[in-house]
């Protein structure tokens, strides 16, 4: 199966390394990041591209843009793994529309387009007879979307809640463990590369809220936007508050919660018993799904990371190949 990859950051390179390391039978015929691009119908030398990127060089030709790769390369699936833009989803949204319009399948890890335009993109994919897959947009390596769409098909989901942001979970874990202040724990998370220079997106609960919107719209058949999510971050939490929770064998976690019937979408710090399965350490993610037939299920795993997110993208790619694409 022939794919093109847009975005050659952490996720894009994770996918390239996995393709090189494993015999996945995927040929990359196009590759682009924000500065340059490559098109090669015979298959791009990924090792050489990784080396160039690693040395700080351009991975391809500066005259080849991502839009060129989408429009001109010969491929079955567009792998769209450029950075998330939550305001208008661009430029990724345009690339996805263009590929679907060319009757190409799309696999993305990009939250912006899925959170903002899922119904439109779903209809466009259906009209062109192709798949749109987005497992990597929510909770990295955890196959939550696949589990809900396939494994739990036929169940009614009454409530879904969990830890959707590894950065916040790391900060809260450290505040509870060593009585660090919020600022100290954030500084430590930055040093370890778990938090961005501007951590607003994570610590104010925006990242978790976007994931709720994606699950609500794509899986739970709700029509919501980011503005519908009641949202409180973790910036005001104190070590004393964590100690007061600890005194009662509880702790505090940033929890995203959807109650479909009540129309509730909420991200807020909550008191959780330490024995609760959602109380995971460090940067892990954990999600509990309450269903009528299967009962309660809790998924725990790595919510971010190069290889982990690549795992979700590759899972989507192989899903499409099994069901749709003939030949390779």
């Amino acid at each position: 199966m022939r794919i093109v990859i847009l975005g050659f950051g952490s996720v894009g390179r994770g996918i390239a390394r996995a393709i090189l390391a494993k015999n996945l039978d995927l040929t990359v015929t196009g590759l682009a990041d924000s500065r340059s691009g490559l098109i090669d119908p015979a298959g791009i030398d990924l090792l050489a591209a990784l080396d160039r990127k690693g040395n700080g060089d351009l991975c391809g030709n500066p005259d080849v843009s991502p839009a060129d790769v989408v429009a001109k390369a010969d491929y079955d699936v567009l792998v769209e793994v450029t950075p998330t833009n939550v305001d208008d989803g661009e430029p990724a949204l345009g690339y996805i529309r263009a590929a679907l319009g060319r009757s190409k399948h799309v696999v993305t890890s990009n939250k912006g387009p899925i959170a903002l335009a899922y119904p439109e993109l779903r209809d466009l994919a259906a009209a062109n007879g192709v798949f749109l897959k987005y497992e990597a947009t929510v909770c990295g390596a955890i196959p939550l979307i696949h589990a809900m769409q396939e494994g739990l098909a036929g169940n009614t989901i009454s409530r879904l809640y969990g830890v959707f942001n590894g950065t916040c979970n790391y900060i809260l874990t450290r505040m509870a463990e060593d009585s660090l202040t919020y600022e100290q724990a954030l500084a430590e998370a930055r040093e370890l590369g778990y938090a961005e220079a501007d951590p607003t997106y994570d610590v104010e609960g925006i990242d978790a809220a976007i994931k709720l919107v994606i699950l609500a719209n794509a899986i739970l058949d709700m029509r919501t936007t980011l503005d519908d999510v009641e949202r409180t971050g973790i910036t005001l939490l104190t070590p004393e508050a964590l100690r007061l929770a600890e005194d009662q064998d509880c702790t505090i976690r940033l929890i995203g919660e959807i109650v479909p019937e009540a129309g509730v979408l909420r991200v807020s710090p909550r008191i959780v018993a330490k024995a609760h399965p959602l109380v995971v350490e460090g940067t892990l993610n954990a999600v509990t799904v309450e269903t009528d037939l299967a009962g309660d299920l809790t998924f725990i795993g790595k919510g971010a990371g190069s290889t982990e997110t690549a795992s979700a993208v590759i899972g989507d790619l192989l899903y499409i190949r099994e069901r749709h694409v003939q030949g390779s």
Partner: peptide, 8 residues
């Protein structure tokens, strides 16, 4: 004030 409610 910030209010932290229980999960359950």
């Amino acid at each position: 004030l910030l209010i932290i409610e229980p999960l359950e």
